[in-house]
Design a protein around this nucleic acid. Structure first.
Length: 232
DNA sequence: GCGACAG
DNA sequence: ATCTTGTCGC
């Protein structure tokens, strides 16, 4: 299968923005996903200024145990520009996804979904490029405003931008900074919140993201050593 | 024109 | 994202 990001090198910011506007119109934020048995988390780390490393870990939703994983390395296409993150990360994410032996039913991405100025954060863009249902899990705000977040675990408040509900600010654990959850592709905010909580145990970040973060970082080897791939 | 600004 | 160690608190 050909690489849909093959023409991304050398894109100017304004060309990237034009591309986002067109792509955003194709994002689906209604539930259109299969029964979720396998959930995956993806994260991208940088070995240095020009090499990106993506890690994906697939977990069985039932017990949150890893059943597959993949890592990919690729040159970094362009510098980081707020709002254009997907152009930096999608290529290496697609490469890692292609190396997976088992396709997940749902993918949780590091970064926002439609909680983006043009409604096309890295989670939505990745969903569009792969056709996979995706959820945006951001650790900080890019755009939008919100009121106080309930302190109890599971509590949340809407994230709004221009009178539009673009996501939710969710307290995954009491006493920790909240997470910014938004629909990526083929999923509603309500369902996205459900799965993020279903993947969260004792930490601020869902297990999917924790695994992917660990492997994409320099401590990757330590995490890989913990991967006791559970059989089907 | 002046801030804000995922990872 | 990444540079970096110890340390305050439950």
């Amino acid at each position: 299968m050909e690489d849909p990001t093959a023409h991304w090198s050398g894109l100017t910011p304004r060309e990237a923005i034009a591309l986002q506007r067109e792509a955003a119109s194709r994002v689906v934020i209604e539930d259109d996903l299969p029964e979720v048995k396998l959930v995956a988390g993806v994260d991208v780390g940088f070995e240095n200024r020009d090499t990106a490393r993506a890690a994906i870990v697939v977990l069985r939703l039932e017990d949150l145990k890893p059943v597959d994983h993949a890592v990919a390395r690729l040159p970094v296409p362009m510098p980081y520009i707020p709002g254009l993150l997907s152009f930096r990360e999608c290529p290496v994410i697609l490469e890692a996804l292609s190396r997976l032996r088992r396709d997940p039913d749902l993918l949780l991405c590091d970064g926002h979904g439609i909680a983006h100025p043009r409604r096309l954060g890295v989670a939505s863009h990745t969903g569009l490029l792969t056709g996979l249902p995706t959820i945006g899990v951001g650790k900080s705000r890019l755009t939008g405003t919100h009121g106080p977040v309930p302190e109890e675990q599971g509590g949340w408040t809407p994230l709004v931008d221009k009178d539009e509900e673009i996501g939710a600010v969710l307290r995954t654990r009491s006493g920790v900074k909240p997470l910014y959850i938004s629909a990526g592709h083929r999923i509603s905010l309500e369902t996205a919140l459900h799965y993020v909580l279903a993947c969260t145990t004792r930490y601020r970040l869902p297990e999917t993201t924790r695994w992917a973060d660990g492997i994409a970082s320099d401590r990757g080897q330590k995490w890989l050593g913990q991967l006791t791939l559970s059989p089907d």
